[in-house]
């Protein structure tokens, strides 16, 4: 009799297991559809931009250069329609980050009354800085100085934008490892044991370690395969739409970004040998 090869038996299990996984709809859903949905959902979440809501009191004199400058700042969302009392309560709740009124006094000086709230201190102080900068500029221009004492030169370094997915990534990573370990291996063996499949295997000459190895190998292969598909969808589909400049244009960066992150998750989980 030829020498019995555990490896050959192991590959037989791997092959059978792969066939079984591919025909199992839940495996396909968990490995392909779920990650895709997660990526898309988190990708959209990260699309939100930083906005400061500023309420402008009714009856304010809007015909002044400060207000006009404020209107040009895209980060600011100026709310003009609401009644003063209502605005005040919104301010207390932090739904509005600041409140301003513009009144010219009898000397013709523009008095800007600004209220911020402890419910939203960061945005309030952001607004304060913006407002004082505009006021300083206005005041400075009145002095008609030809050469300023100090000059600020600004340069923004091109970098990787911070996105919500970066914040979510560690959690997803952990969950991915957890599900790989629990669903991918433990549950499979529990179910194979309950359905007596393992018992039938034990009646053949393969040893226990090679049964586990064979199962793990098939999951590793499937995991790599589904990662490749997800990365390919991310790379080709979203890039493609960007080239055409279609409807998805405004989100495309988000998608690229999340696919980039997710591919790193997948690679990590693959590195840990199953999913």
């Amino acid at each position: 009799m030829n020498k019995y090869s555990q490896l050959r038996a192991m590959f037989a299990i791997t092959k059978a297991s792969l066939h079984s996984i591919v025909r199992n709809p839940s495996a396909v859903v968990f490995n392909l559809v779920f990650p895709l949905i997660f990526i898309i959902v988190f990708g959209f979440i990260s699309g939100g931009r930083f906005k400061i809501d500023v309420a402008v009191e009714k009856g304010s004199d809007m015909n002044n250069p400060v207000f006009q400058s404020l209107e040009k700042i895209s980060t600011l969302n100026l709310i003009k329609e609401k009644a003063t009392g209502e605005m005040y309560s919104e301010l207390e709740k932090g739904r509005v980050d600041a409140m301003v009124s513009f009144v010219r006094n009898e000397k013709g000086v523009l008095v800007i009354d600004m209220k911020t709230t402890k419910a939203s201190p960061e945005r309030g102080s952001f607004f304060k800085v913006m407002l004082s900068e505009i006021i300083d500029e206005q005041n400075l221009s009145m002095t008609r100085t030809e050469v300023p004492m100090t000059e600020l030169k600004e340069e923004v370094v091109e970098g990787r934008k911070y996105k919500t997915i970066d914040f979510i990534l560690p959690g997803q990573l952990g969950f991915s490892l957890l599900s790989a370990g629990v669903f991918g291996t433990a549950f499979i063996f529990i179910s194979l044991r309950q359905t007596l499949v393992i018992k039938r295997f034990f009646a053949t000459p393969i040893n226990k370690a090679h049964i586990i190895l064979g199962e793990s190998l098939s999951r590793l292969i499937f995991s790599i395969f589904s990662s490749v598909i997800i990365i390919l969808i991310g790379t080709f589909f979203w890039l493609h739409t960007r080239e055409r400049g279609c409807y998805f244009y405004k989100y495309d960066h988000t998608f690229d970004h999340s696919f980039d992150s997710i591919s790193r998750i997948r690679v990590c989980s693959v590195g840990n040998c199953k999913e």
């Binding site: 030829n2 050959r8 038996a9 053949t204």
Partner: peptide, 9 residues
């Protein structure tokens, strides 16, 4: 059958 053939070499 193929699976068991493999298991039995």
């Amino acid at each position: 059958i193929e699976l068991f053939a493999g298991l039995y070499n």
